[in-house]
Amino acid sequence: MTVATDRLWPRVAASIVIGLVLAIVPLPWWLAALRPSWLALIIVYWLLHEPRRVGLLTAFLGGLFLDTLHGALLGQHALALVLIGFVTQRFNLRIRVFPMSQQIATVLMLIALYEFMLYWVDGVSGQPASDWRRWLPVLSSAAFWPVVTIVMQKLHRPLPQANRV
C-alpha cells in the first residue's frame, strides 16, 4: 500500500474533534435521546482499520475530553471507550472481514457494552440511571455505522484517489 500513512495523526485528531463537536451540538429534545455515540463509533473505526497506529491511549484521551465536555465524572467515558477499544483491537482481524450486516451487529454489541459501562458508573456514583431512553443510542449508533464507515474511509485515505486522477 502506497498510502502516505505518515500523516495519520492529523486525521485522527480531526476525526476526534468532529466526534466531540457532534456530541455537544444541541438537538431538539426528541432527537437528543437518539444521538448516536459518535466518538465511540469513530474510535471503533480507527482501532478496526489502524490497530497498530491508533491505540487505546487515543481512546482514553478522547474519552477524557468527552467527560470534560459532558460534565461527567472524569474517567467515565474514558473507561468505556478503553474497554470497547480493547475488544475491537482483540477481534479486529475478524470484524474487518465481516460483511456490513454482521459489522452492524458487532457494533451494536460494542456500543451496548459502552452504554452499559456508562450506566454502571452512573449507578455506582449515585446518578439516576433508570430510564429506558438511555439505551436508544445503542440502536441509532449501530444504524449509523455504515455512514460512519464511508465518511471515515474518505477521511482516512483520500490520497490514492487524488493520485489516480
Partner: peptide
C-alpha cells in the same frame, strides 16, 4: 494490549474515584 488496557482502565477508575 491487555496490559495497556488494564493500566488505562485502572487509571480511569482512579480518576473517577478522585473526581467523585
Amino acid at each position: 494490549p491487555a496490559v495497556r488496557c488494564f493500566g488505562l482502565v485502572l487509571l480511569s477508575i482512579v480518576l473517577m474515584v478522585f473526581d467523585y
